[in-house]
């Protein structure tokens, strides 16, 4: 991965990606057909981009995110990071990959382990990947806390998740995601559980992190306005298909797909 040329390859490349699930057992154990969560997806995300994935629930957004950080593998198709295939990674290369991609989840009340202090939560990835000494890790954690706006970092170091608000927890999740200086972060509806005044601050934070560290983001949301605010380009996903990709500006002004038009129509606003 040393001689990666961002002009030659997108940072992330999905080609013909399909993901099929066996149906969850229904309440009465009925059997159904396979669920095609993703159906033949092609997607490129460039280095330094904040790329938005917008769609309604069940459309395949989280599945896309999970495949890109390799929490799961596709049924068909190829996924590349910096031009290198990740489908069959194992051993050392897989471990290296895991240090380069991170995911931030929707629910700040479930995604942090309540038994770990904030310090333990954020330093865990460093420990797992054997990075630094206890002292340097402590430094790094405090510095990262400050980067995500939890200042002074020392004041939060020994706190536990239950002592923090939802917005602060989400900042801890961001800190944990960036502590290894990853190349790529999937943020899966990170603001959907937050109040508007708190959500907008988190969006600012993600944008600042991109600017400062050049990290690349997949920002998953059902909120087109949030995608417009934060993202360079946006893909609209519907029933496992990407129906259009463009700048948010263009998508909103000239939606091509009927589903996109519908999505725009139902965005809450102040028309009365």
């Amino acid at each position: 991965m040393t001689n990666y040329d961002p002009d030659k390859h997108p940072l992330i490349e999905m080609k013909g990606v399909t993901k099929a699930y066996n149906p969850r057992k229904g309440f009465f154990g009925r059997k159904g057909n396979k669920v095609l969560a993703l159906n033949d997806i092609d997607l490129n995300i460039h280095k330094g981009e904040i790329f938005g994935l917008v769609g309604q629930s069940g459309s395949g957004k989280t599945t896309t995110g999970r495949l890109l950080v390799k929490l799961e593998d596709p049924t068909h198709g190829k996924i590349r990071l910096k031009g290198e295939l990740i489908n069959d990674l194992g051993g050392k290369p897989l471990q290296h990959f895991r240090s380069k991609v991170q995911m931030i989840f929707q629910d700040p009340y479930q995604s942090l382990n309540p038994h770990l202090s904030i310090a333990e939560t954020i330093s865990e990835p460093l420990v797992v990947h054997g990075i630094g000494s206890p002292e340097s890790r402590r430094e790094k954690v405090i510095q990262t806390l400050e980067t995500v706006g939890l200042r002074p970092g020392k004041a939060f170091y020994n706190h536990y998740p239950h002592q923090l608000s939802g917005g602060q927890r989400q900042r801890v999740a961001v800190a944990r995601a960036i502590v290894l200086d990853p190349e790529f972060i999937v943020a899966d509806e990170p603001t959907s559980m937050l109040d508007a005044t708190i959500a907008i601050q988190l969006l600012r934070l993600l944008s600042r992190i991109r600017d400062e560290f050049g990290m690349t983001f997949l920002f998953i949301t059902h909120n087109l306005a949030a995608a417009k605010y934060l993202c360079d380009r946006v893909a609209v996903i519907h029933e496992g298909h990407i129906v259009e990709v463009n700048t948010a500006e263009n998508i909103i002004r000239n939606p091509e797909h009927p589903y996109t038009k519908k999505l725009i129509k139902v965005q809450p606003g102040f028309r009365f």
């Binding site: 608000s165 508007a196 600012r204 306005a225 949030a226 417009k228 605010y229 965005q267």
Partner: peptide, 23 residues
Amino acid sequence: TLLGSYLSLDNEEHIIIPDMRES
């Protein structure tokens, strides 16, 4: 603050980022 931080499709130029620290 509440209105100023609300994202809709046509207001991003006017967004105010609040600094709500304390609950």
